[in-house]
Amino acid sequence: MRTILGAVRGWAQRTDRVVEVSLGGDILKVTGVTSEQQEKIINDWLARHTAGS
């Protein structure tokens, strides 16, 4: 999942697009923040979904 989100994030940055990812009703949408903030938001979102895996 991390690899997919990394690829999507890179594409969104290069094309200035907004991408939403939804898993079990939890939506990840990152726009208008720094790369560092994006990384933290994505890591926190992934942690919520991989903690029980």
Rank of each mutant, 00 (worst) to 15 (best):
K40G: 05
S35G: 07
R17F: 07
R2G: 11
W45N: 02
R9T: 05
S53Q: 12
G32E: 10
T50R: 03
D44W: 02
S53N: 12
E39N: 08
R9A: 10
G6M: 11
G10D: 14
L28G: 03
T3I: 15
G25A: 10
G10H: 07
E39V: 03
D44P: 00
T3V: 15
L28V: 03
V33S: 08
R9Q: 11
T31V: 11
R17Q: 13
W11L: 09
G32Y: 07
S53R: 15
V30G: 12
L28A: 02
D26L: 01
E36Y: 12
R9W: 01
E20C: 09
T3W: 14
R14K: 10
L23M: 15
G24M: 01
E36I: 13
A12F: 06
D44S: 04
S35C: 08
E36T: 13
Q38K: 05
V30P: 10
E20Y: 14
A47H: 00
K29F: 06
A12T: 15
H49T: 01
V21Y: 07
T31Q: 13
G32A: 10
V8R: 02
Q38F: 09
W11P: 02
Q38L: 11
S22C: 13
D44M: 00
S35M: 09
W45D: 00
V19I: 15
T3F: 15
A12Q: 07
Q13S: 09
D16M: 04
T31E: 14
L46A: 01
R2W: 06
R2S: 08
L5R: 00
A7I: 03
M1I: 07
D44G: 01
V33Y: 03
G6T: 15
V18G: 03
T34D: 10
L28N: 02
V21H: 02
L23W: 14
L23D: 08
E20H: 13
A47P: 00
R2N: 10
V33G: 00
M1P: 05
V19Q: 05
L28C: 07
K29I: 00
A47M: 06
I27F: 12
I41F: 08
S53I: 08
W11M: 06
G52M: 05
T50H: 05
T31R: 13
L23C: 14
R2P: 01
V33L: 02
I27L: 14
Q38P: 07
E39R: 11
Q37H: 08
D44T: 00
V21T: 05
T31C: 12
G32S: 07
I27T: 14
A51K: 09
I42G: 00
V18N: 09
R14N: 12
L5E: 03
G10P: 00
S53G: 14
Q38M: 12
V8S: 03
I42F: 03
V30Y: 12
I42Y: 06
S53D: 08
V18D: 02
R48C: 02
L5D: 00
R14E: 14
T15Q: 09
V21Q: 05
I4G: 01
T3G: 07
A12G: 03
Q37Y: 00
K29Q: 11
R2H: 15
K29V: 08
Q37D: 14
W45P: 01
E36S: 15
D16K: 11
W45H: 04
V18S: 06
